[in-house]
Each structure stands twice: as C-alpha cells, then as structure tokens.
Design a protein around this nucleic acid. Structure first.
Lengths: 335, 335
DNA sequence: ACGTCGCATTGCAACGTTGCAAACTGGGTA
DNA sequence: TACCCAGTTTGCAACGTTGCAATGCGACGT
C-alpha cells in the first residue's frame, strides 16, 4: 500500500480532491459536516500532504538552510538550537550544513544549501566575503552572521565585535593587568570577525596606556580547545609571559585554562582569562570564564525575521543589524 | 527574472527539455558536442534543478531528518556533526529537529519530521518507546539511537550501555573506591538508556562486593551541567558522602566537577569522577574526565547505512546493532 | 415567481522534473 | 539497394498539490 494522497481521500470521502485540499489548508471554508467527514477519512488512511508537490505548486517549501563551519562547536551548536527554535516559531524547518571551514564548500553550500531547494540561508561564514556571497544568481536569499559589512543585497546580523573586544580587554586593564595577550587571530582568513576583535583589543590597550606587543598577539589555525592550549603554551614560554589572555572564543579560553593548569599557574591569580561567546561549558568550568555574551537568541531571531523580509522582497538593500552583547564577569578575570 | 528551468535552458541551447535533463543527470548518454553546448548555457543562466519537482517526480528527496532532544548538548552536537558528514557521503542532506524532551513533540516530529517530506529519520528518543514509534502508518522509516530494544520494523543502533556502565564502575571499584554514587537516573522517563546504565553500575558494585545504597543513586531532571552540580551537592551533603561519582553523561560530570570545586574537594583525591560520552570539553577540563567513549562516528555511519537499507526494503525485521565503546581513563579517575 | 446573493463545492491547469518508449541519425552490413 | 544497429535525441505523461475561476444550490428579498 502506497502513501495516501488527496485523491485517495477524496474518493473515500465522496468529495472532490479540491475539497480535501481545502479541509487541510483552509478548514474554515468547508462546511462543518463535510469537514468532519473528510477529517475522519484523513485520519483513517493516515494521509500526510506530499511536501514536494506542495512546494512545487506553492513555490516555497518553508525550509531554510543553516550553513556553519561546524555544528559541534559549542557556539554554533547553541546558535543552531536558537535558530531551529526560532524557525519553528515561523513555521520553517532547518536544514543544517557544515563547511568545515572550507571556502569551496562554503560557496557550494550557499548555492541553495547544495541545491536542496531551501527558501533562504542563514550563513555563518568562515572565509567567504559578502562580495562573493552577493554575486550568485538564482540562489536563495542569504543572511550572514558575523562581523562582515553588509553588501549588495545581502543582510548581516552580528554583535559589535570591536566594541565587545574593547570592553573585554578594558576590563583586564582596569583590574590591573599589564601584559595582556590576545589569542585567536586568523590572518590567513578573509573572515572579518577576528580582525574586529583584534582592533577592539588594541584600542583598549591604547586607551589604557599599554603599548601593543606583536609577541602577545597569537594566531590560531582553528578555534578548538587544542588551539587555545597550544597558543597559551607558547605565550607562557615567553621570556616575559602575559598576566592576562583575551581569547577570541570560549573554546580557546578553555584550552588556555587547561594549558595554565598544566604549567601549574593559577587562574586568575597568575594569569587572568577572558573568553568570548558565553558557551555553557564556560559557566561551569573551574574557574568559570569571564566572557563576552552575545545575545544568541536575539541573533537567531533577528536573522530569521530579516531573512523572512528579504524573501518577501529580494530587492531590498543589504542591511546591517546589530545585536546587543554584555561582558559577563566571572572567576577567570574577576573584578 | 525568475529562476531558470529546464525549458529555458533547452530553448536557449536549441535542444529538447529532455536532453538538458540528461546533461544534468546522465551526461554520458549525451553527445560531447551537445553536452558542452548545453553545459555552457546552464552556467550562463545559472540553472539549478528544482528540487521539489525532482523529488515529486522521483519519489524521494535525499533528505533525512535528525530528531534529537537538543542540538546544543555537546553529545548531540557532536553526533549531529557526524551524522551530517556521513549523510553527505551518501548524498543526503540533514534536517534537524529538536524535541526539547517533550514526548508530544517527539511524536509529531516523527511523523515525517513535521511532515517535511524526509525520506527517513534518525531518532534519538528521550521518552518515546519503540512500540510507539513502530505503529505509525505512512510515516518515513526510522532508525532509533540509544538503548531501546529493536521492535517491529524499527531499527536500533547503540553501544552496549549496560556493559559500558559496568566497565566504568568497575574501574572505580578497582582503583579502591568504596562509596560510589551514580548520577543521572531518569525514573520519570520511559527512556531505557539510563536504566541500562544503572543496571551496569549495580552489576559492577555487586561484582566488587559493594552493596548498593539507594541514597547514592541520584535522579536528575535534565542532563545539563546544572543538574550534575545539583545532584553532586546533595551527595556531598550526605552524612557519608561518596568517594566516587559515576555520572551518566559528561555534562553531568562537568557539573559535578564544578560542585566539588565549590566544596573545596579535590578531584580525584577526595572524589573520583567518571563521565559518559567523551565530549570534547571533558578532554580539556581540569582535571580531564575519565569517561566512556562511544564510537560516535561509527554510530552515525551505521545509523545511516541501516536507514538506507530500510528505505530500500521497509519490510525488513527490526534490527539491533551494537557499536563499540571504550573506557578512556584520564585524570578525574586515574589508574 | 423571479432575480440575486453568498456559501460550498468543483474542474481545470500548471508548478518542473524524469521514466518510458518511440523516433531519428548515420554508418556498416547483407 | 535494402536493412539493421548503436548512438542520440525527442515527445508524452505523470508525480500530488493548489490558484483560479466557475458552478451549483438554497435562501432571501421584491
């Protein structure tokens, strides 16, 4: 027995196909008696609308793509959870794709999340620039997450990374740290996020009367625990090691925490640590991480409403929306 | 200008619609000259196949659903990453749904991942039993993850939770612990996983000549850090506190770690900790977690190949597949 | 009794694609 | 010359749904 379709239901209920469709999509226009009868048959035969057919006919499928570097990084996982929830609110379903930080994959996936007919894409870029994103014809609308200036017909939603990094660093300055390192530069990528965080860090140093030291600005390859640990080890081996480290993500910071412990250094006594992202694990680490908390829920919601607006009118100019953040002071860099 | 379709390309290239379709789907049957000409037009107009139409015609869309309690729990996030990767290998895309541990939502989502026309579902149940899963008509095939006996035409893929829990507990016994607590019971759920882990825990206690103590078996509501911390606090307040805690997930264990620190207890000196899942954060915590490591990649791959087989033949009996695991001994419960 | 109005229901066509089978092409063979 | 064959290309129909416009029908007003 195949899956039941509208015609099967219609025949069994003694009405036209169109009426069954109406019962499913606009019950109020169908007479109560008919509606109930049809409804009963629908349940009897276990009818489920064929989404493909509906999508083909309606021209949209209420599915959006979420393209992220890696879904298992806590930040992206938490973001995805918010996106999925917000999408459901809007009647959409989310198709997840991972780029693994590969620019070529980013490009491919953007072309309609591997062509899987999504109505729109929420894109968290690793290496692709808005310019590249905007010059794709016939592809679904895109909202970019992260610090990339809006461009063409592409919208952008992000926190003010530069200000956030400035605040984080300023907090370290204000609590008496003098040799403050930054971990998380990604000079090999065209991604702007790290650049903005670095700029904010330098601003805060300057404002605090501290001179920048290239040896304290450590690039990383990826943003995993291991990278943070590695970078921290090298910092701690310096002739003049830092007394504070600002990590561009919490994952890096947790790796740094581990590296400090391995060296027998106490955090925050010997080295203060500040992270970025406010992931759950950082709230329970020992010591708990001081970090920049982006409003992830707002970020997800705003991204989706923006995407919705662009789906409705693709000719809108690219917008640049800012989501609030706050510095959460915990044990790794206390007051 | 609307999205180009086969007909647009066909007209521009001076061939039939069918030939364009062939160029896209079976280039080898088209004469090289024609193929190249059509290919050029395809690129010119930026043609992308309409997935909905293809799906409607072919009867499948190469999209599977992944239904999990919460995508932002590290274990599920890591699992999802593996599933997405393995799915891509097979030419599938993954649609993610969260149940938030709500049985009603689990039921709804299973009915075709909210009806979104998926060809199959990988389902990590929280409360639903295979019996409930198997009696859904016209719904896509399902593979269940976790310790639930296979049932009807539903397949199951999991590690041997009972054996794993036994090994974990036995390790604590072997290293001289005598009051070993278990954190993570979920008596309010029909989910079998916690039950099996509890059984394994008790077996190991018995094998080590230790008598079970109801006060040391602590139920939790969810499996977050907070639940682990809370449970641990209550354990440490006992007149006879435990000298080891076996947490049913790493997240619980990280919460426990935090609670121990708050009490001024040293891990593993005062209390040994063992977790479950081998999430990345547990490899970098201080101390690093001893834990049960399921082979998540294998789990994901096996789930998908199994799902594929069931899509091909839905009349297969329900299978029960076991994925290997191993105990990873780290600092929180050393040798 | 007739026309009209509003509600309920209906038939037709089309969304873009692919399976199927038929049709065409040119060259080789009997 | 007639025929066949392999290699290409084509037309038609159908997948299941919904937008549109039209129809049927009973009730109401005149």
């Amino acid at each position: 027995m195949n899956r039941a379709n509208l015609r099967d239901v219609a025949e069994r209920a003694g009405v036209s196909v169109r009426t069954v469709s109406n019962v499913v999509n606009a019950p109020e226009v169908v007479a109560p008696a008919t509606r109930e009868r049809v409804q009963r048959v629908i349940e009897e035969v276990g009818y489920r609308p064929n989404i493909a057919a509906r999508q083909l006919r309606r021209g949209r499928g209420d599915v959006i793509g979420l393209v992220v570097p890696e879904i298992d990084s806590p930040y992206f996982a938490e973001l995805a959870a918010h996106v999925v929830r917000a999408a459901e609110e809007l009647g959409w379903t989310v198709l997840v794709e991972q780029t693994d930080g590969d620019p070529a994959r980013e490009r491919d996936l953007l072309d309609g999340a591997r062509g899987h007919g999504v109505d729109g894409v929420v894109f968290s870029p690793w290496a692709l620039t808005p310019a590249e994103v905007s010059r794709r014809a016939g592809a679904p609308p895109v909202v970019m997450l992260g610090e990339q200036a809006g461009f063409g017909h592409v919208d952008r939603v992000a926190i003010d990374n530069q200000a956030a990094a400035r605040e984080a660093t300023a907090h370290l300055v204000a609590t008496g740290r003098r040799r403050i390192a930054a971990v998380g530069l990604q000079p090999h990528l065209s991604n702007e996020t790290a650049r903005h965080r670095l700029a904010g860090y330098r601003e805060a140093l300057a404002a605090g009367g501290l001179s920048p030291d290239a040896a304290l600005e450590v690039p990383v390859d990826r943003l995993h625990h291991a990278d943070g640990a590695r970078a921290t080890e090298s910092l701690l081996s310096l002739p003049e090691p830092p007394d504070a480290i600002f990590c561009f993500t919490d994952q890096l910071a947790l790796g740094a925490l581990r590296a400090c412990a391995d060296r027998g250094l106490r955090v925050p006594d010997d080295v203060a640590l500040v992270g970025f992202d406010d992931i759950e694990a950082g709230r329970y680490s020992v010591p708990a991480l001081t970090t920049v908390a982006p409003d992830k829920q707002r970020l997800a919601e705003l991204a989706l409403t923006t995407l919705g607006e662009r789906m409705a009118d693709r000719s809108l100019p690219g917008r640049d929306l800012v989501v609030p953040h706050r510095l959460v002071v915990r044990e790794s860099a206390p007051v």
